[in-house]
């Protein structure tokens, strides 16, 4: 069909495109290889399995009597668990939500009203508020009192007075049994 000269020209052209294709393929493979190689280095910085194993804590609430407060550790921080008395529940629910610095109704902060689960780290600068031990100063609202700068929390863990900007954080938790919660 085509004469020899044409075949030679197309042969050379094909040679060049084949060469470019090879270089392109090689570069692509190299790029994929480098990206795949980098992944484990970055991945190794994620929280490791032993850290993740401690990312949830199960707490058996049965031994905690009405009016008692329990502190458990979760992800390196204290979590306050309060088995609230009916008076404390009522005091928490009767508050005018719009008057709060960080408006939140008590119902939004508990799953069952008798049990309050909050992270015991003051939202001002991170101290641990008092109120968990018998004899501790609970502040005028019967909740918690932070001795560092005087933040005062109510029986729902909401900020009422003092420099803290927000309510004590409610961690993610769920009931895995009648009296057992899993935090985190």
């Amino acid at each position: 069909m085509a004469n020899l000269a044409d075949q030679h020209v197309t042969g050379a052209h094909n040679g060049e495109t084949r060469r470019d294709f090879l270089i392109l393929t090689a570069t692509a493979i190299g790029g994929v290889g480098v990206a795949a190689a980098i992944w484990p280095f970055i991945g190794s910085l994620s929280p490791s399995r032993d850290t993740l194993a401690l990312s949830t804590t199960e707490v058996d609430l049965a031994p905690v009597q009405v009016g008692q407060r329990l502190t458990v550790a979760w992800r390196g921080k204290p979590v306050f668990i309060d088995h609230r008395t009916p008076e404390e529940i009522k005091a928490a629910q009767d508050v005018d939500v719009s008057s709060l610095r960080d408006p939140q109704p008590d119902s939004a902060r508990v799953k069952k009203p008798e049990w309050l689960v909050i992270v015991g780290v003051c939202t001002h600068l991170g101290c641990i508020p008092l109120g968990q031990k018998t004899g501790d100063d609970r502040g005028p609202f019967g909740g918690w009192f932070c001795p560092c700068h005087g933040s005062i929390y109510d029986t729902s863990g909401r900020i009422r007075q003092g420099p803290a900007p927000a309510n004590l954080v409610v961690p993610p938790y769920e009931y895995t049994g009648e009296t057992v919660i899993k935090i985190g």
Binding site: G15, A26, G30, A36
Partner: peptide, 15 residues
């Protein structure tokens, strides 16, 4: 992956 890479890089080198 490396076997394929060896093949491709060898072909590129020869070219």
């Amino acid at each position: 992956f490396l076997l394929v890479a060896v093949g491709v890089f060898y072909a590129a080198k020869r070219k």
